[in-house]
């Protein structure tokens, strides 16, 4: 693989073939985790989480520890030198003196690109504001491949906060490189996908999208329903958040409208946009995504370290 020393800031940083290679490695790790238990021994992952995170941070830490590597880092802006006003570039340059690889989550869009330019070690984008979240996309693509058996010829409904939903932005950017993908963008007017996301679709190989306001109007057509949380931290004021957060809730009644082989995905955590009763439905695959996520991150770390 040729990914050694590179950074992963958004899905197109890897070609489709390189992405496939990461998936194949993830599957090999999944099949025989013991073979990889010391593959990153002596290597150090720095986790620079300027924003709160449980899932992504744990997933990265678990991935590195299961590879035999070690982890340093901080979580929350107040516990880092950013609280003293240090720039992202200076922080990552310092961290690069100790660590072999870094993952950064930061509220500003494009922050991971800045970190990668300054670091001199591989940098992974763990989420930059409402912009991109490429490792969630690796997870999502792995799940789609496993559950649907293909990454093309799919009708994908993206539902909820499409304006600030970074997992959606990354997933669109990745999926529009495959043939025959059709997107249905389901959101209230206030939370519609940004122009650049729609432009991504227009330039991609799929080239088709349409917008809908009610999920029940389109559920019967979908191969995949990708739900997202309406995130409080993305809003400038609480009033807008309260007004919109319950707009798009999936429950058992709506699931009756969906095809038998449709899958329901969600990057998690959810608040109330998927009713707990849906969890028992075999079409709900969001907890499988979590497991895939750790293996995808293990593969990514090894590939960037050149230890695959």
């Amino acid at each position: 693989m040729t990914l050694q020393g590179r950074s992963f800031i958004e899905p197109p940083d890897f070609t489709v073939e390189e992405t496939d290679e990461v998936f194949r490695l993830a599957k090999r790790i999944m099949a025989a985790p013991g073979d990889y238990a010391e593959r990153a021994k002596g290597r150090l992952l720095a986790t620079l989480f300027y924003e709160p995170s449980t899932r992504t941070r744990f997933s990265f830490e678990a991935a590195m520890l299961k590879l035999g590597g070690q982890v340093i880092g901080f979580s929350g802006e107040n516990s880092s030198s950013a609280a003293k006003g240090e720039s992202i570039s200076d922080t990552v340059k310092t961290v690069a003196c100790y660590a072999d690889i870094a993952v950064i989550r930061h509220p500003k869009e494009g922050s991971a690109r800045v970190a990668a330019a300054a670091a001199g070690i591989p940098v992974i984008n763990g989420g930059d504001g409402g912009h991109q979240h490429p490792t969630q996309t690796l997870t999502d693509l792995m799940t789609i491949m496993t559950e649907k058996g293909r990454l093309g010829d799919l009708k994908v409904g993206l539902c909820g906060d499409l304006k600030f939903g970074r997992t959606v932005h990354s997933l669109v950017r990745a999926l529009c490189r495959y043939e025959g993908i059709e997107f249905i963008l389901i959101s209230p007017e206030e939370l519609r996908a940004p122009d650049y996301v729609k432009a991504d679709i227009g330039r991609g190989r799929c080239g088709a999208y349409r917008e809908a306001e009610r999920m029940q109007d389109v559920l019967s057509e979908l191969d995949i329903l990708y739900m997202t949380r309406v995130q409080k931290e993305r809003f400038f004021n609480e009033e807008d958040y309260i007004r919109l957060k319950d707009s798009y809730i999936l429950d058992a009644e709506k699931m009756r409208l969906a095809p038998e082989d449709m899958i329901v995905m969600h990057p998690l955590p959810r608040v109330n946009e998927i009713a707990p009763e849906v969890d028992a439905d075999p079409r709900a695959v969001y907890f499988k995504q979590v497991e895939n996520g750790m293996y995808a991150r293990m593969a990514l770390i090894l590939a960037l370290l050149g230890e695959e």
């Binding site: 720039s87 500003k108 869009e109 409402g130």
Partner: peptide, 13 residues
């Protein structure tokens, strides 16, 4: 002009 862009806070880029 995006207030959420990193260029609004990061100096010297």
């Amino acid at each position: 002009k995006n207030p959420r862009c990193v260029t609004s806070v990061e100096p010297a880029i």
